[in-house]
């Protein structure tokens, strides 16, 4: 077994554990951290596939994923701060309304 295949399996595990965190976490901040885990899993998969195929395009795409992660964390944490300020929602299951 080549080492890139092992890293690909690790990346799939990382993505699925991020999805697991999104499903089970109660706090909104830790939920966002779990989405970051998913993005890291995608990056790891892209880079390991890139090593296997022998190109550099996967690393370029991973760079774009990093950009999107930065944008996502800015907007997501802005939303979290707005939700915490709004009515005192804290748990992810309490947010059932889009507006007051």
């Amino acid at each position: 077994m080549k080492i890139e295949i092992a890293y690909t399996l690790i990346s799939i595990f990382l993505f699925l554990s991020g999805l697991f965190g999104v499903i089970i976490r109660k706090n909104l901040i830790t939920l966002l951290v779990s989405t970051e885990l998913m993005l890291n899993g995608v990056n790891l998969g892209l880079v390991s596939m890139d090593k296997m195929v022998g190109g550099v395009e996967g690393q370029v795409f991973a760079l774009f994923v990093l950009t999107v992660a930065a944008a996502e964390v800015a907007v997501g944490l802005g939303l979290v701060v707005a939700i915490f300020r709004l009515r005192g929602y804290e748990s992810s299951s309490e947010i059932t309304q889009l507006r007051d």
């Binding site: 890139e4 990056n43 880079v47 890139d50 090593k51 760079l63 990093l66 992660a69």
Partner: peptide
Amino acid sequence: LGAELLAGLQLIIY
């Protein structure tokens, strides 16, 4: 895996 640029960017950005 030999992706030095991404390792540095990972450290800087994340």
